[in-house]
Computed example of a mutant assay.
Amino acid sequence: MELLDSARHAALRVSAAPDAGRHFVQLVAEEFLPAALHYPILLARHPETGDLYAGALMGLVPDENLCLGPNGTLVDYRPADLVRQGFYVSGENIAIDVHHPALTQAEGATVFDADGGPAPALRRVQAALRQLHVGLPETEEFLRRLEEHKLIEPIDLNFQFDNGESLRLDSLYTVSLDALHALPDATVLTLFRAGDLQLVYAITGSVRHIPTLARRRNERLSGLIQ
């Protein structure tokens, strides 16, 4: 890990190529509304802590992204966690992993302009890092409230593809609308005033994209798309 420096890293480029290997991308609550227009938003648990986190499902197996366009990049909303790949907050500075695939590609967008100032790609990274820095604790609190009200439930995802492949996704969760609708009115009002309800409906509404992912994987397995 190195601190980002305009002189030392003047020739640095950042590429979106590693997006192709990301099948589940962490989101913060601020991203739920734009992300829900394009991807299923599901919940998972950190393997070390057991805490819930939210993510956009972009593929049905690891290292598979079914949401890329013909040029290999995302056609629609690109989450902050993808934008900041290879970049990290280090105190008041930005640090980089010089060995990260996003930063070791020959192609990509320049990080610094000719005068050593931040190029548009770096400004996008800076915005993404700020969004994550503020949004991660806020999202943790939101998910904690949902758990306190027992609104989290497992989601059953089973797929059967035309080539005979069967696939089951375990350890993913969503929000139970039945449990939400059973809450006392006062509790629902509190969630509404906290802005939680629009996030809940973004999550639950986004599952409509799951069949689209299954169709795309089926086409890929059938050789109809690459």
Rank of each mutant, 00 (worst) to 15 (best):
L177T: 05
S166Y: 04
G164E: 12
A182V: 09
L169F: 05
L172M: 13
L177N: 09
L169K: 08
D162M: 12
A179S: 11
Q160A: 15
G164R: 10
L151F: 14
L151W: 15
D170V: 08
N163R: 10
R168S: 13
G164T: 06
H181F: 14
F161D: 09
G164M: 13
E165Y: 00
I155E: 03
I155H: 05
L172E: 04
A179Y: 08
V175Q: 03
S166V: 01
V175D: 01
L177P: 06
D178F: 03
E153V: 15
E153C: 11
L177Y: 00
S171A: 15
F159Y: 09
I152F: 07
A182W: 07
N158E: 11
L157M: 13
N163Q: 06
V175R: 01
L169C: 10
L183C: 11
L180E: 06
S171V: 03
F159I: 06
F159T: 01
S171E: 15
E153M: 12
E165N: 04
L167K: 08
G164D: 10
V175E: 01
P154R: 03
S166N: 06
G164S: 05
S176E: 03
V175M: 00
L172Y: 14
L151P: 05
L167F: 11
N163A: 09
N163V: 10
I155C: 07
A182N: 15
Y173I: 01
L157H: 09
L177G: 08
F161L: 12
R168N: 13
Q160E: 07
L157V: 13
D162W: 02
S171G: 01
F159L: 06
S166K: 13
P154G: 07
T174Q: 01
S176A: 07
G164Y: 07
P154V: 02
P154H: 03
L157W: 05
D170T: 08
L169R: 12
D156R: 14
L151K: 11
S171C: 03
R168C: 04
G164F: 08
E153S: 08
I152Y: 05
D156N: 14
L169W: 03
Q160I: 02
D170M: 03
E153Q: 14
D156Q: 15
N158L: 10
E153N: 00
N158R: 10
